[in-house]
C-alpha cells in the first residue's frame, strides 16, 4: 500500500502576541491508503493542529509533509486549495454546513470548485446523500435536520469528491451517544466499502479501540 499522507518531523508553532506556542514538536506518521486511524490525546495536545496539517489547511513550521504525493512546502495557497479539493475530505465537530442552503447543495459545494455544472453536481451529491441514508432529505435546510442528520450531510460533502483521506475531528462531539454511534458506524462502513482512509479524532476509548490502529498525542508529540 502507498501512503496517502506522510509526515516526517513535523512541527507547528503558533505565534501569539509575540509568545511562541509549540503545538506540535516533531511528529512523524504515515497514513496508508484505506487506513483507519484513531487519534487520541488530552485536550490541547495538538490533535486539531495535526489534523489541519494533514489536510493541507495549514502548513508545518518545519518538517516534511507530503499529501497525495505532493510536498506541501512547495505549494502556494491556490495549489493547496486544489489539493484539499481533490485529496481530502473534512468533517468537523461543528458540522459547518451553509445555513441557507439545501442538503444536496451543501454536499455539492466541493464540486463547485471543480467547475462542474449544476446538474452533474446535484446528481453526484444526491447519490452521496443516498449512501449516507439521507436520500429523502435532499431539499432540507440544515435547520430542518437533526444533529445526526447534519453530520451525515457533512460526511457526504467530505466524500462527494471521492477523496483519498477523510479527516474527522471529533465528529461525534456535538451528538448524543446513540447518534454518535450511528455516525461512527457509517464512517466504518464507508471506509470498508469505498476504501477511503479515515483519520478520526476521538475521546472515546471504545471508539478508538475499534480503529485499525491508534495514535496517542501528548504535548505535541506522539507517545
Amino acid at each position: 500500500m502507498t501512503a496517502a499522507i506522510e509526515a516526517t518531523g513535523v512541527t507547528r508553532t503558533y505565534e501569539l502576541d509575540g509568545v511562541r506556542v509549540p503545538a506540535l514538536r516533531g511528529v512523524s506518521l504515515t497514513v496508508p491508503e484505506g487506513d483507519y486511524v484513531a487519534l487520541v490525546g488530552p485536550s490541547g495536545s495538538g490533535k486539531s493542529t495535526l489534523m489541519h496539517l494533514l489536510g493541507g489547511l495549514d502548513r508545518p513550521t518545519s518538517g516534511r509533509l507530503v499529501i497525495g504525493g505532493r510536498d506541501v512546502s512547495r505549494l502556494d495557497p491556490a495549489d493547496l486549495a486544489r489539493l484539499r479539493n481533490e485529496t481530502i475530505g473534512f468533517v468537523f465537530q461543528a458540522f459547518h454546513l451553509l445555513p441557507r442552503t439545501s442538503a444536496v447543495d451543501n454536499v455539492a459545494l466541493p464540486l463547485v470548485y471543480r467547475g462542474l455544472g449544476a446538474r452533474q453536481r446535484r446528481a453526484r451529491a444526491a447519490a452521496m446523500l443516498e449512501r449516507v441514508g439521507l436520500g429523502h432529505r435532499l431539499g432540507h435546510r440544515p435547520n430542518q435536520l437533526s444533529g445526526g442528520e447534519q453530520q451525515r450531510v457533512a460526511i457526504a460533502r467530505a466524500l462527494v469528491t471521492d477523496p483519498a483521506v477523510l479527516l474527522a475531528d471529533e465528529p461525534t462531539g456535538n451528538l448524543d451517544s446513540a447518534t454518535g454511534q450511528s455516525v461512527l458506524a457509517l464512517l466504518e462502513a464507508l471506509n470498508a466499502d469505498s476504501g477511503v482512509a479515515v483519520v478520526l479524532v476521538t475521546h472515546d476509548r471504545e471508539v478508538a479501540a475499534r480503529a485499525r490502529r491508534q495514535i496517542v498525542l501528548r504535548d505535541g508529540v506522539i507517545v
Binding site: 491556490a78 486549495a81 484539499r84 459547518h96 459545494l109 470548485y113 469528491t161
Partner: peptide, 16 residues
C-alpha cells in the same frame, strides 16, 4: 468568515 473557511476547506482558492 466561517463560510469562507468552510469554502476554503473544500477547495475554494483565494481567487474564488
Amino acid at each position: 468568515t466561517r463560510e469562507i473557511g468552510l469554502r476554503k476547506a473544500v477547495g475554494a482558492r483565494p481567487r474564488d
